[in-house]
Design a protein around this nucleic acid. Structure first.
Lengths: 140, 140
DNA sequence: GTTCCTGCAAAAGCTTTGCAGAAGA
DNA sequence: TCTTCTGCAAAGCTTTTGCAGGAAC
């Protein structure tokens, strides 16, 4: 998928964010591994290829990209942030057994929202928790 | 509102959680101050009345109560947990200006959820972010 | 009398900051 | 060349843990 990275580099240029090797690798990883990784996971995955890479750079990169709206940070865990390259409106399901996070499509307009007249809404986070089908079938 | 605390103490007894002075005070505070406070806020509020109170106890208390389903912890901030004594399904709106958190009613059944056949859902967190009416009117 | 809870001190874990050298434009 | 980025070390914060004394039942 060269097209995706092309779109991504264009987004960086539009936001006047320099195309450093580290940033492109982090973005490539997020694009090719839609697992909503933690900083730790990104670090472990890229460390072999870029031995000098530091976690500080990953934190800096993700903060920069979040502010530019190129990635989205998820607060679905209580201790550690996760990152998503999908920035369109969708929900996240976290399995309490395997800890995996699944995307799902939502129609937020159908959430009956009384009580919010006069509120200007910029973003919406929807997190579901439970057991995924794979873990349900492993009857333990 | 003596009835609320009566209900609360009954919940504690049902869960075999001892009715310590500290726990009752934390719960009373949550019940009378529906501001989704942080541990820090609870600590500051109760410290005058209970000078020996420690943050460790507040953390222990809130963890115990969360596990028993008597309070709910919110991950609406990226750094600090907030706590809610309302445990029924409802949404939270956080104002980016005044940082206040508002409750709102939702009907989650109307969220069009494809992609989740076979998933067993235990809980749902819905967080909205934007500007509240008060802050919208202060045109700054 | 038992069992569980409190609170101090210390540790753990995630994230940010300061800064000198390196890389991008 | 000028500005920005990287990465090391250290610090900052929230939260957890170990444990002795104390409170609940």
């Amino acid at each position: 998928m060269k097209s995706n990275l092309g779109v991504i580099t264009e987004k960086l240029k539009n936001n006047k964010i320099r195309l450093s090797h580290q940033r492109l690798k982090v973005l490539e990883y997020l694009d090719e591994n839609r697992i909503h990784p933690t900083v730790e996971q990104i670090y472990n995955a890229l460390h072999d290829e870029i031995p000098t890479l530091s976690k500080t750079t990953i934190y800096n990169t993700l903060n920069t990209l979040s502010e530019a709206g190129i990635v989205k940070s998820l607060n679905i865990e209580d201790n550690e942030a996760r990152y998503d390259i999908r920035t369109d409106e969708h929900g996240h399901f976290k399995c309490k057994k395997c800890e995996e996070i699944y995307d799902f499509e939502v129609d937020m307009d159908k959430v009956a929202v009384k009580d919010l007249e006069g509120f200007r809404i910029f973003s919406k986070d929807l997190y579901f928790f439970g057991i995924c089908p794979k873990c349900s079938n492993k009857n333990t």
